[in-house]
């Protein structure tokens, strides 16, 4: 009986971790793609998620839109936001050294966090829907319905994105650009336009993630810091620029976080994967799937 209960707890923790991990993967895919194509480490990626979450909340507040419906508006809007960030901030500094590019995104991160603080104050906001607290019971495990939906949408979207990259012309152009920028440019690929597209797509994915998260999480001005940092952990674990890596990494981190929360201490659940992060950086900085491509441009050798 006790063994059953112990296994039950373990299974519950793993499943919860996977569900959250799916969303982490979605957030991380955007980040890693921007790195792979545009070769910039976007410290403001978490803040983009925050914008998406606030936007979804606003649509719910003003128009009564359910988040799963609002996502159809939020995703394209976030795409445009991504385009704006690329054109306005990243483009002018493409020639700068890697460290300066980072400072610019740090500035963006500060600006966005405080913009949210100005507009919405520090209060925690969420969207209560009919299904926010719904739970499904499968095989003795209780699974939060919105989290399950989030997981499936995230995985489906990630899968769709992989197909896009593999099968479509544009997708292949993006991959070519990530692999070898000079060769791609010589072959006539419009580098700048693809940078804009990559940033827009990455931000759009984050937009979906935001809409999926708001029924089960709160949003507040600094929510981006936590998720953004987690996204970095996932991206480094999976390998900078590797999308399968972001997918797998997200699931791993989700499970690690969940297990740490249950078996070590809730206050330390993030600390455990940050420690894992540090270890990965020291021992295998290219991550699980990373091939070290493009690391010179970002300042690594």
């Amino acid at each position: 009986m006790r063994r059953d209960k112990a296994i039950g707890t373990l299974m519950q923790a793993i499943v919860s971790g996977l569900l959250l991990g799916g969303v982490y993967s979605l957030i991380a895919i955007g980040l890693t793609m921007v790195f792979g194509v545009v070769r910039i480490i976007n410290f403001a990626h978490g803040e983009l998620l925050m914008i998406a979450m606030y936007l979804t909340w606003l649509l719910n507040l003003w128009l009564g839109l359910d988040p799963y419906v609002a996502v159809l508006i939020v995703a394209p809007v976030m795409f445009v936001v991504g385009v704006a960030v690329q054109r306005g901030i990243v483009q002018p500094i493409l020639g700068s050294p890697a460290s300066m590019k980072i400072f610019a995104t740090v500035g963006l991160s500060i600006a966005l966090q405080n913009l949210a603080l100005m507009l919405f104050k520090g209060d925690f906001r969420t969207v209560q829907t009919s299904y926010s607290t719904a739970v499904m019971r499968i095989g003795g495990l209780s699974i939060s319905t919105p989290r399950l939906v989030a997981f499936f949408v995230a995985v489906a979207l990630a899968g769709g994105f992989f197909l896009f990259l593999k099968r479509t012309l544009v997708g292949k152009a993006l991959r070519a650009l990530a692999e070898d920028r000079d060769a791609a440019a010589l072959m006539g690929i419009p580098v700048r336009r693809l940078y804009v597209l990559a940033f827009g797509l990455g931000t759009g994915l984050v937009g979906v993630a935001g809409a999926l998260l708001i029924p089960v999480f709160y949003t507040f001005p600094t929510v981006g810091q936590l998720f953004g940092l987690t996204a970095f952990v996932v991206v480094v674990l999976g390998g900078l620029g590797s999308m399968p890596g972001a997918m797998v990494g997200g699931l791993i981190i989700g499970v690690v976080e969940s297990l740490s929360g249950v078996y070590i201490a809730p206050a330390l659940k993030e600390a455990v994967y940050f420690l894992l992060f540090i270890v990965v950086l020291l021992v295998r900085p290219q991550g699980l799937f990373g091939l070290g491509r493009g690391t010179e441009e970002v300042g690594l050798k």
Binding site: V106, I110, M118, K121
Partner: peptide, 21 residues
């Protein structure tokens, strides 16, 4: 005011971006 403080740092964030560019 929390919001004024937010404005302050918002400006610094923007300044940082401008300085980098």
């Amino acid at each position: 005011s929390q919001q004024l403080q937010g404005l302050n740092f918002f400006i610094y964030g923007v300044v940082l971006i401008i300085v980098v560019i």
